[in-house]
């Protein structure tokens, strides 16, 4: 089976009203890897994450997360994963502190442990000064940090992060990326989507590129460069644009003086 694999995806497919959002994708992610999942808008990244975290039923295919088959025991999968979705569904009328305490308790932590981790996370993500504020009054960046803290509080084995750095200030961004690196070094698997390609270049051991619901490339950056016959000095942006066959218009708009 999946020796050393934290995530095995087998022919995962999602069709919405006759429109195929994700088309028979298969890949595996080794334990402790920082896996970047890239693609243009609407390529199927978020749909894939939602299927892998049990929030959306696949039309076909299956996945195995930390040895647990998704279709067989969803609850067991949810015990070992942490999820940060793009939409950030948070309870707006709780304070940040209450939200984290609640998330900890729902993950089965006892009161004392939930309290300890909450305080550490609030301090770590620079939310301690705002812990008494209701989430409805949080800025977008603060919400993102709180959602990330909720995904981390139970020390998950696999982290699914959909655009985790979007809207976060540069200082917090650095704190978060350093934390994610340390988590990967300790064996946590990170499944990560972003549009910021230089972050992917700095962090990810391996990437998969999805376009129109299909995986068009997978491997380390060097492997993908080699597959596409691109030189070693080609940036990830060059590789990405070539993979998704993006037509970058270079002419000016006619009315711009």
């Amino acid at each position: 089976m999946q020796d050393g694999a934290a995530l095995v995806v087998e022919g995962l497919t999602k069709v919405f009203r006759q429109q195929t959002a994700v088309d028979r994708i298969s890949f595996r992610v080794a334990r402790g890897r920082f896996f970047g999942f890239l693609g243009p808008n609407g390529a199927g990244k978020s749909t894939t994450i939602r299927m892998l975290t049990g929030l959306l039923r696949p039309t076909a295919g299956d996945a195995v997360v930390e040895g647990v088959r998704l279709s067989r025991d969803l609850l067991a999968v949810k015990r070992v994963i942490g999820v940060l979705t793009e939409e950030l569904p948070l309870y707006e009328r709780l304070t940040g502190e209450e939200h984290l305490l609640f998330a900890g308790r729902m993950h089965g932590l006892d009161r004392g442990e939930a309290r300890r981790r909450t305080e550490e996370l609030l301090e770590f993500l620079s939310l301690a000064d705002e812990q008494g504020k209701l989430v409805v009054d949080y800025s977008q960046g603060m919400r993102k940090k709180l959602a990330l803290a909720c995904a981390l509080i139970h020390n998950p084995r696999v982290l699914f992060l959909d655009e985790p750095l979007n809207g976060i200030d540069p200082v917090s961004g650095r704190v978060v990326t350093d934390l994610l690196r340390r988590l990967a070094a300790r064996g946590v698997t990170l499944f990560f989507t972003t549009h910021v390609l230089d972050v992917v270049e700095r962090l990810c051991d391996e990437v998969a590129v999805i376009d129109h619901g299909r995986i068009v490339a997978q491997g380390s950056l060097d492997e993908i460069r080699a597959q596409r016959a691109m030189g070693g000095d080609a940036t990830l942006e060059d590789v990405f644009l070539k993979l998704v066959a993006a037509d970058v218009r270079r002419e000016d708009l006619s009315w711009i003086g």
Binding site: G54, L55, A76, K78, V83, P89, L90, Y91, M106, H107
Partner: peptide, 8 residues
């Protein structure tokens, strides 16, 4: 709802 049903 998706947050709630995401809890184990």
């Amino acid at each position: 709802l998706q947050l709630l049903l995401g809890f184990p």
